[in-house]
C-alpha cells in the first residue's frame, strides 16, 4: 500500500514540476500596456492627416502602404489616400 502511494506521489510530483517549469510553445505571454504611436512620413516628415487617408503622404506622395483598403472593422475604404 505504502509502495503504491509513493509511486503516485512521485508521479504527481514530477508531473507538477514538469508542467510548471517547462517552456510553453510560443513563449510566455507578457502583459503589455496599451500605448500610442505615430508614423510620420519618412521622406518629408509630415504627419498623416485623417482626411488625406492612410496609404500615402499628402505632401510628398510617399507610399505608406501599397494596398487597397476595404471596409473592415475600424478601417474603411475612405481611408485610402
Amino acid at each position: 500500500m505504502a509502495e503504491e502511494k509513493k509511486r503516485i506521489q512521485a508521479y504527481l510530483e514530477q508531473l507538477k514540476n514538469k508542467v510548471e517549469t517547462q517552456e510553453n510553445y510560443g513563449g510566455e505571454i507578457t502583459n503589455e500596456e496599451a500605448r500610442m504611436d505615430i508614423r510620420d512620413c519618412p521622406e518629408c516628415g509630415a504627419g498623416r492627416a485623417y482626411h488625406k487617408g492612410l496609404t500615402a503622404c499628402a505632401y510628398c506622395g510617399f507610399v505608406f502602404m501599397d494596398t487597397k483598403l476595404t471596409d473592415g472593422v475600424n478601417i474603411r475604404k475612405e481611408n485610402n489616400s
Binding site: 502583459n31 503589455e32 500596456e33 496599451a34 500605448r35 500610442m36 504611436d37 505615430i38 508614423r39 504627419g47 498623416r48 492627416a49 485623417y50 482626411h51 492612410l54 475600424n74 478601417i75 481611408n79
Partner: peptide
C-alpha cells in the same frame, strides 16, 4: 488608428 482631435494626425493605438 486614432485621429487627433486637434491636428487630425493619425496615431496608432495598441491595446494592452
Amino acid at each position: 488608428y486614432i485621429t487627433c482631435p486637434f491636428c487630425q494626425s493619425q496615431n496608432t493605438f495598441s491595446p494592452s
